[in-house]
Design a protein around this nucleic acid. Structure first.
Lengths: 186, 186
DNA sequence: AATTTCTTTTGACTTAAATCAAAAAAACGA
DNA sequence: TCGTTTTTTTGATTTAAGTCAAAAGAAATT
């Protein structure tokens, strides 16, 4: 729980009363490896914070799973468009290691918006996360396969260390075989 | 001005008093073809609405201009990450036709946030625009050159009609020659 | 510990699109 | 209107990465 508070404080400074308000509203959840946290088509009515574990976001394209990102400890995640617009999610979120999460529902987060600290936190989180996605997709679209791989090592070493080859290749938009060859030469 | 109000009303319903408050704060601006509206490195301290004209967003990569999008009449634009985080812009915005714009500064928009209608408008605009960018980049990254071109015809016919080949190719992340060949066969 | 299943590697071949170069067409300015 | 500059088209060639197929290696299940 301290990790979550620390995370939020990066964006906005929580008062003692707002910390209490937060603690009263969060829920602890556990998922086993391969369990689905959010299914495509369902509404993302929560945001989650990762205490422990690894979570994968993906969607289907012609029956194939396309992994878009993998989140690790001390990160927050949700299906952004689904949560902020309260519409069905395009993406599925799956635990790819046994995971322990702290969740906050949309309704409770609306309650917390009475506290201006939370208001600015969610605005900033929204902006930063989307900016990051935007920048990531623009930067990566101009790189070769191995440049993308090297850039991912820099920005997300946890993914490289813990996720399997196929998922990493999918994030980079390259084939498994190509990633395997990139790794073998060096 | 009615066009702008109509635009905002798509997201949120403006009261009469908030319309007046808005009218008192906007500024009309004109740009000639090729003029720069926002320069890379400068802070985007405005959002603009297009009454007339065509505006191009681009950034530099290895000295080459990469066009990310082109906006036409009745759309709002700004450098999203720069405006919402009030940081220097990565992208440059340029008029590529003689253009007439209505602008609202960041400071004035903060004033308008006293009106809850504007608050929900800017939150929704932020969410929708970023969701659109996100979806666009994900969908397009899996398509072939000609599939991307056909998809762009669907979602942005104005760009296809009015922007030059090189800009369109750049948005699609393909070479000019490839786009020219796609067009010639059909 | 053995068998089955899943994941990664390696090889051979194909292909979509990039690059380089030059010609043709269109737009612009004096 | 003519010459200059910009933009688009066409042709020839190269290349990065995909696909298909099979082997090797690792992990999970009984």
């Amino acid at each position: 729980m301290q990790e979550l508070i620390k995370f939020i404080n990066q964006y906005s400074n929580l008062s003692e009363s707002s910390v209490v308000a937060l603690e009263q509203r969060v829920v602890f959840e556990s998922y086993e490896k391969n369990e689905i946290v959010l299914r495509q088509g369902d509404r993302a009515n929560k945001v989650w914070f990762i205490k422990k574990g690894l979570l994968r976001k993906f969607y289907y394209n012609n029956g194939k799973e396309i992994t878009t990102w993998i989140h690790a400890e001390n990160e927050m995640f949700t299906s952004m468009h689904s949560y902020f617009q309260q519409k069905p999610s395009q993406e599925t979120i799956q635990a790819i290691e046994d995971s322990e999460l702290i969740s906050l529902s949309y309704e409770k987060s609306v309650e917390l918006n009475q506290y201006p600290e939370f208001n600015s936190f969610s605005q900033e989180l929204l902006t930063k996360q989307f900016s990051a996605i935007d920048e990531f997709s623009k930067r990566f679209s101009l790189m070769s396969a191995s440049e993308k791989y090297n850039a991912l090592i820099e920005i997300a070493p946890e993914i490289i260390k813990r996720a399997k080859l196929g998922y990493i290749a999918s994030i980079l938009g390259i084939s498994q075989e190509t990633l395997s060859r990139i790794r073998s030469k060096k």
